[in-house]
């Protein structure tokens, strides 16, 4: 145990630089997946056949490709097509796109859970599609969508470790580098696990808060 704390003190600063990248990747891909997910969801509920089919196909294609393959594609294949991305850019883009499919399905479920009478009431006072969405449907859907959204945040935090496969020196990769140079596997990976857990706890509490609020109505 004494050895652990000693190692922890020594490796902590290096791992913290990994934490910074972990947070950047998580927040970046969270924002991107939210925007893309909203767009796919809007396409699906637009009532315009071409758009909703396009949205559904996009979601299925994205869902059917493993995150790691998506990352490899962006980082290793795109340069052959003339688009060179930094490892960090590719990570944010890849995770953002991969998670946009789950976000979209979550948003769509929230939107479709809104009582049809609400939409009719909005239409009956002359609101068009977009105004109905903005003023009536989305504000109510947010409440329903937030708890699963919080879960996606936690999953994204953990899945940001997949960025290590394309050389982003985030927490998991920093841990691996230290472990392979010091052979202190147990202490290093225990510390890494504890650091992920520490970052997850506030998010877990946030989800619990969302769930309570959604349940209250």
């Amino acid at each position: 145990m004494k050895g652990f704390w000693h190692d922890a003190a020594e490796f902590f600063p290096i791992l913290m630089s990994g934490v910074a990248l972990t947070i950047i990747v998580t927040i970046g891909s969270l924002l991107l997946s939210t925007v893309l997910g909203l767009i796919w969801a809007m396409m699906r509920v637009s009532g315009i056949k071409v758009l909703s089919m396009l949205g559904a196909s996009l979601i299925n294609v994205i869902r059917g490709i493993p995150i790691i393959v998506l990352l490899f594609y962006l980082y290793f294949v795109m340069p052959d097509l003339g688009v060179t991305l930094s490892a960090l850019q590719a990570a944010i883009l890849g995770l953002g796109i991969a998670y946009s499919a789950y976000q979209a399905e979550n948003f769509r479920a929230g939107i479709e859970a809104i009582d049809k009478g609400q939409i009719e009431a909005a239409q009956s006072i002359g609101m068009g599609w977009w105004l109905t969405m903005r003023r009536v449907v989305l504000p109510q859907a947010v409440r329903i969508v937030l708890p699963p959204y919080g879960n996606v945040m936690i999953m994204m935090l953990k899945d940001s470790s997949q960025a290590s496969t394309i050389t982003v020196a985030e927490l998991a990769l920093q841990g691996k580098l230290i472990a392979s140079s010091t052979f202190k596997n147990t202490n290093v990976f225990t510390l890494v696990a504890l650091m992920y857990l520490t970052m997850s706890i506030p998010l877990i509490l946030l989800v619990r808060h969302f769930e309570k609020r959604a349940g209250k109505k």
């Binding site: 609400q118 009719e120 009431a121 006072i125 068009g128 009536v136």
Partner: peptide, 20 residues
Amino acid sequence: IVKVRTQVSMVFQRFNLFPH
């Protein structure tokens, strides 16, 4: 249709007020 709806209002059986 927007013009029609702004001239003819509707009251529903289940009220359909905006709860938020």
